[in-house]
Design a protein around this nucleic acid. Structure first.
Length: 620
DNA sequence: ATAGGGTTAG
C-alpha cells in the first residue's frame, strides 16, 4: 500500500531532522574539560578509557554539586559528551537550579556572565540547553529572554530552538508572534507542525489549522492519530463536518483506522451543524458496516440530537436502546437526561436522575449543577438550591456563576446576583455574554436607574466584548419590565441602526414594550418590519400583539393580523384564542368571517400543546 | 490510561 511507503519515508525524515537539529551533536571532549569534570570517571591515568556516563551518576552529581553555577556547568559538560543525552530527571532537577540562578543574577545576561567568569565557553549549545530548561520548567518569560539572547550572541536559532519558542509564544497567547516564528523556520520538522497544530486546534483557529495542515502534508509529514483527532474535533465542533470528512480521508491515507470516536465526532458534528438526518444515516451505516459498534458517547450525541430537533420519542427510544444493551449511563448521559427532562418541564424526573447519581457512583459536576440550577429555577423550587450547591465543589467557574446570577435574578434576589457578578469579576474569569446578560437583568430589575443600566450597557459594548441577541434583548426587556418603555424602544431602534444581532425574541420584547406603552400602531408596524428584516414571528410574537389588540379592542387590526398568523401556520395558545373569540364573537360579521377558524380551534382545544410553548420560543 | 458526547442568558 502506498501510504505505508509514505509513512516509512516520513518516519525516516523525522528521525533525520531530529538528529540534525539535536542539541546533542557529536563532540570530542577537550582534555582540559575532562580534567575539570571527569576525574572521578577515569579509572586510572591515561591508559584506561573513561567509564561512560550513566544517568544515575549524572543525577547524583547534579544533586551533590555545591553551587548552582557549578551544577549548570556540569550539566552542560555532560551534554557535550559523546552519545550522552540528558534524561527527564536531570532536566527537571535543573529547572530548580536555573530558577534560583535567575533570581540571584536577576537577568539571563547575568547568568551568562557568571558562567563565563566560571570558565564556561558560551556556545550556541549552552543557550539552547538553557532555553530547554526554562521551557520544560514553564518559566516562559525567561525562555523568551534566552531566545532573544541567542540573537545578540550572533547565533541563528535552529529548528529545535524555534519550535520551543513557538510553543512558548502560543502558550502566552501571542498567536501572531508564534506564527511569525513558525513561518521563519527554514527547515520545519514534524514537531514544528505538530506544536502549531495543537495550539491552533486549542484556540479553534480553523483558517490557520487548514494552512498548517496543508503545509505539513505537502512537506511529507502526517499528524499522529491524537493530533488528527484534535483537528477533526475542531472541524466538527465548529460546524464544518464537510471538511471534517476530508480530514478523515487524510487519516485513512496515513494509515489511521476510523475508530468509534471518529464516528462519534462525525455524528455529533452533523447534529451540531443542524443535519440530523445525515447524523442518523451515518449512525445506521456504522451499525451496518459493523466495523465498530456505537458506544455511550455515540448514543449520547444521538439522544441530544433528537431532543434538539424536538423528536422526543426518538430520543427516548435511543435511551432504551442504551438500557437494553446494559450500558450504565455515565455522568454526561445523566446530565443530558437532566437537561432533557427539564426542557420538557418534567422537573420531578430531572430531580430523580440527580438524586440517583450517588447510587450510580457518579459525581455531579459543573454541567450537572448548571442544569439543575436551571431546572429548579423553572420549577420555582428555590428551597432546593442550597442542597444542590452543597453537593458540588465550591469552585466558581464561568458557567456556574452565570447560572447562579440568572437564578438569583429570577427569584428577585438582585443583590445576590450582583454579588456573584462582583466575585466573578474579581476572579479574573473571561466573562461572556451570558454573564453580562444576567448582570444587566439584575441591574434593571434590582432598582438601578435606567440611566445607570444604559450606561453599563454602553460600556460593555464599547469594550468590544462579543455579544449576541440575548444580550441586547436583556436590557430592552429589563427596561420594559420596569416600565421604561420609551428608553427601551430607543435602544431597540439603535440596535437596528447599528445592525446588532437581533432575533425573533428581540422583536417580540420590543413589541411587548410598545403594547404596554399603548403604542399599538407602532407595535403593528414593528411586526411588518420584522418580516421585512427576514425575522419570522412565532406564536409568542403573535400572542403578544394579539393580546394587545384584544385589550385595545382594535378589531380591524386584530382581524388583519389574525389572518396573517393563520396563513403563516402559527398556532396560538388557548388563552389568546379565548381572548380573540371573546372579542369577535358578539359581532356577526366577524364571527362568520372566522367561523371555520374558531371551529378548528374548538377541535384542538384538548391538545396539550401549550407546555411546548416555552420550547417554541427558545427554539425561535 | 484516554479520546469522543453534556452545562448557563432574553
Amino acid at each position: 500500500m502506498l501510504w505505508r511507503c509514505n509513512w516509512v519515508k516520513q518516519r525516516r525524515k523525522i528521525i533525520n531532522t531530529l538528529s540534525f537539529s539535536s542539541i546533542h551533536t557529536h563532540f570530542s571532549p577537550k582534555v582540559k574539560e575532562i580534567s575539570e569534570f571527569s576525574r572521578e570517571n577515569t579509572a586510572g591515568p591515561r591508559r584506561a578509557a573513561p567509564r561512560p556516563l550513566t544517568h544515575d551518576d549524572v543525577y547524583s552529581r547534579l544533586r551533590e554539586s555545591p553551587s548552582d553555577l557549578k551544577t549548570l556547568n556540569f550539566f552542560f559538560w555532560c551534554a557535550r559528551q559523546n552519545n550522552y543525552f540528558h534524561d527527564d530527571r536531570a532536566f527537571e532537577h535543573m529547572v530548580g537550579v536555573v530558577e534560583k540562578l535567575a533570581r540571584q543574577y536577576k537577568s539571563i545576561d547575568g547568568i551568562i556572565e557568571g558562567l563565563r567568569l566560571s570558565g564556561c565557553a558560551i556556545k550556541p549549545r549552552v543557550l539552547l540547553l538553557l532555553l530547554e530548561i526554562f521551557w520544560r520548567g514553564h518559566i516562559y518569560d525567561k525562555a523568551i529572554e534566552v531566545y532573544k539572547g541567542m540573537n545578540s550572541f550572533g547565533y541563528v536559532p535552529n529548528t529545535r530552538a524555534m519550535n520551543m519558542m513557538m510553543d512558548v509564544l502560543f502558550k502566552n497567547n501571542l498567536v501572531d508572534r508564534a506564527m511569525e516564528v513558525f513561518q521563519g523556520i527554514r527547515v520545519r520538522n514534524f514537531f514544528s507542525f505538530d506544536i502549531a497544530l495543537s495550539h491552533l486546534c486549542r484556540s479553534r483557529d480553523l483558517v490557520k489549522v487548514k494552512i498548517v495542515l496543508k503545509m505539513m502534508i505537502t512537506q511529507g509529514f502526517y499528524p499522529n492519530s491524537e493530533r488528527f483527532g484534535q483537528v477533526l474535533g475542531v472541524f466538527c465542533r465548529t460546524g464544518c463536518v464537510g471538511q471534517g470528512f476530508q480530514v478523515v480521508g487524510l487519516m485513512i491515507c496515513s494509515g489511521i483506522s476510523v475508530s468509534v470516536h471518529v464516528w462519534s465526532m462525525l455524528v455529533s458534528g452533523f447534529i451540531r451543524s443542524g443535519e440530523l438526518q445525515k447524523a442518523v444515516d451515518l449512525f445506521n451505516k456504522m451499525i451496518q458496516t459493523g466495523c465498530c459498534s456505537p458506544n455511550l458517547v455515540t448514543y449520547t450525541s444521538l439522544i441530544k440530537g433528537f431532543m434538539d430537533f424536538g423528536m422526543v420519542d426518538e430520543a427516548f427510544s435511543v435511551l432504551s436502546t442504551v438500557q437494553s444493551k446494559g450500558l450504565a449511563p455515565d455522568i454526561v448521559l445523566c446530565n443530558v437526561m437532566i437537561h432533557t427532562f427539564t426542557r420538557l418541564g418534567r422537573f420531578e424526573e430531572a430531580r430523580n436522575v440527580f438524586t440517583s447519581l450517588k447510587k450510580r457512583k457518579l459525581v455531579a459536576d459543573r454541567y450537572t449543577f448548571a442544569s439543575m440550577v436551571s431546572s429548579l429555577c423553572l420549577s420555582r423550587e428555590f428551597d432546593l438550591l442550597p442542597k444542590i450547591a452543597d453537593s458540588i465543589g465550591t469552585e466558581l467557574d464561568l458557567v456556574t456563576g452565570n447560572s447562579l446570577i440568572n437564578c438569583f435574578s429570577k427569584f428577585g434576589h438582585m443583590s445576590y446576583a450582583l454579588k456573584v457578578f462582583c466575585i466573578m469579576s474579581n476572579k479574573d474569569l473571561a466573562l461572556d455574554c451570558y454573564t453580562y446578560t444576567g448582570f444587566l437583568t439584575a441591574l434593571c430589575l434590582g432598582g438601578a436607574s435606567a440611566r445607570d443600566a444604559v450606561n453599563m450597557y454602553e460600556n460593555i459594548i464599547r469594550r468590544n466584548i462579543r455579544v449576541d441577541a440575548h444580550f441586547h434583548t436583556a436590557i430592552i426587556d429589563g427596561l420594559v419590565e420596569v416600565g421604561k418603555y420609551s428608553i427601551a424602544i430607543r435602544l431597540f431602534n439603535r440596535c437596528i441602526l447599528e445592525r446588532y444581532p437581533l432575533d425573533v425574541v428581540s422583536y417580540t420584547v420590543a413589541i411587548k414594550g410598545l403594547v404596554r406603552a399603548k403604542r399599538i400602531d407602532e407595535a403593528c408596524s414593528f411586526l411588518s418590519k420584522m418580516k421585512e428584516d427576514g425575522v419570522m414571528p412565532n406564536r409568542r410574537t403573535y400572542r403578544t400583539i394579539i393580546s394587545g389588540l384584544c385589550e385595545e379592542k382594535d378589531r380591524d387590526k386584530l382581524k388583519k393580523i389574525l389572518w396573517e398568523c393563520i396563513e403563516e401556520g402559527v398556532e396560538l395558545d388557548p388563552n389568546t384564542k379565548f381572548k380573540v373569540v371573546y372579542l369577535l364573537s358578539p359581532y356577526r360579521r366577524d364571527l362568520s368571517e372566522f367561523r371555520s377558524v374558531f371551529e378548528k380551534w374548538k377541535e384542538n382545544v384538548f391538545d396539550v400543546s401549550d407546555s411546548c410553548d416555552e420550547l417554541a420560543v427558545s427554539a425561535g
